[in-house]
Design a binder for these strands. Sequence first.
DNA 1: CTGAAAGCGCTTACAG
DNA 2: CTGAAAGCGCTTACAG
Lengths: 367, 367
Amino acid sequence: MSRGHFDWNSALPPNDNDNNDPAVYPDEQGESRGKVTINDVARLARVSKKTVSRVINNSPLVRDDTRERVQAVIRQYGYAPDPQARALAFRRSFLVGMIYDNPSPQYVVNMQRGILDGLEGTGHLLVLQPCDRSDPNVYDPIEAFVRQQKPRGVILTPSISEDDRVAKILRDADCPYVRIASVPLDNGARMLRTRDHEGAKAAALHIAALGHRRIGHVHGPSTFRSAHERRRGFEEGLAEHGLTLDPALMREGAYTFESGAAGAASLLAMDDPPTALFMGNDEMAVGAYQAAREAGLSIPEDVSIVGYDDTPMASRVYPPMTTVRTAIREMGAEAARQLLGGDEYLAGPQSQSPQPELVIRGSTAQR
Amino acid sequence: MSRGHFDWNSALPPNDNDNNDPAVYPDEQGESRGKVTINDVARLARVSKKTVSRVINNSPLVRDDTRERVQAVIRQYGYAPDPQARALAFRRSFLVGMIYDNPSPQYVVNMQRGILDGLEGTGHLLVLQPCDRSDPNVYDPIEAFVRQQKPRGVILTPSISEDDRVAKILRDADCPYVRIASVPLDNGARMLRTRDHEGAKAAALHIAALGHRRIGHVHGPSTFRSAHERRRGFEEGLAEHGLTLDPALMREGAYTFESGAAGAASLLAMDDPPTALFMGNDEMAVGAYQAAREAGLSIPEDVSIVGYDDTPMASRVYPPMTTVRTAIREMGAEAARQLLGGDEYLAGPQSQSPQPELVIRGSTAQR
DNA sequence: CTGAAAGCGCTTACAG
DNA sequence: CTGAAAGCGCTTACAG
């Protein structure tokens, strides 16, 4: 069954004239005041409403000339099927939920845009479902949402995407979903893998190539898989230069400015401080800028700093920050397509985000 | 008619046991497999479905003991009415649209959270509808959305909120709305006024009190009413100290980092440059930081800088930025309540945002 | 205060 | 390839 892959936005009457053209909003025998239904289309095209329904849903079981006759009427009268009525009959709404707990506004907004890109022209709506994993009742609103709204599907971003209990709730409620995460947590059709490992490795290669040997790392919270993946990729990159990450030079942060500042301050206060810092994300890296400033150290002369994410802030701080760019918006679009594509993705390989890309700016220099 | 002011989320069965307790998802005589409908509730409470409907919709036309009997059944069986079915019958969905074109992620995310705060417990969903006023077809998706989805209402943020053609489209489609804007563009029930004028005035008072006399201003794009309101408020504040804003010391920006940098650079390159800059928003103010740095000027010793918005960046740049805090999230919540409250707001005075508040940090100093 | 009938605008299941 | 009937789960309009 194919459903809803028409661009029903474009089925709206063109809006290039201001007068209420009766051909646009017909008012035949005064009964359909401004609102064309499937019955009107059926009558005008001299077919049953079931045939109109088949045309709407791209069923192949319609003769070509019948289909064209129906489509002509649809176009002429600016007919668009009622999503609520369709949802009721389908037992499935045309909503796509985004479930997220990522604290970065930039990430959230980019992801939203990407999902909207992927949804465009499909007639689906994006519904926001933020959550907080530290709330013991995180699961209730999610379950209420999927059971009551019967969304077409949901997209989960880190770190809530890593929660298997949420996934189980969704499966039990028969709700399709795509999890965006840095490790394969689910079957291929339900996973979109980010490549944190590769991005962090690129950062390591860059730092090592600059001649740094004492290298510090403030990673994200251990409850985020991405924090682990970035550390692992970073270590792998260092290993290619025969280096290892000294545990004494690692700190755990919370992906926040404050935690980055604290972690970096602690490292820079050591007797033999690191000459380069790889911070788990840009937010923490800006915190490291502050810590360096307070320690009287210049960036990059005294200490090189690398972030992760390439948020707008990265290019606006001074000096502009070397960081790793991730294509968040593209990832959101891909997740949406994957969600709606469904079975097509079952056969293929696990889908992945675009390759993260190192952006070299002014916060890193030769040792 | 009161509708949908129940917290249907809490009507979901408590999830404290993992087994499929038949009292939670009843399967009486094998016909209602895991899905309780209004018919089940009616039968179990020995009333008509119409009476159940009255209870759901908080109609006063139900005897207390009848109501309690129905509510007991609803609770016991974890009944939650189907939003799609209600929407079809009501000819109005339980969606609330947010229509926005604000470029700042921080603003967008805060506003979303606020709207969600205001929607909580009402059974309404937040649907995203970003737009771009520079696109000649901005209006089409908006009209398609409100005509097809029949949302419960939409909330508009600056600058799209200032567009009267959008407002007309919404009225013509019979779609309730609230416009968030710095000037009264519509009737009271449809307006939530921001107090840009007051925030900017506070900034002016602060700068003038520090003894500055040559004061520059980079304002937002003239297509934003807020840009005008902020300038006006700023001038009013200066006037209280007997000062005026020299037109030669004004530049137009675009509320972006780059435009702020350019505007500030142009002012700081003057023969007799201003000793203080009031930037139209934080984003542009960070641009002014860059311009000052490139001109070899220290903040605040050589030039004081004031922003507007108090985004997280404001406290993370160096030196921490003096700026004006606006309660965006609270505003979103208020807009949502106003939208759902409807007529209650018709009588009262025009609703306003909380008072903007000057946050003095390290980017301003005595002349 | 309560209910039986009709309807919202679609799709499913069945028949041909 | 096409259609008449029944149904999705609610509310409206009317009656009592």
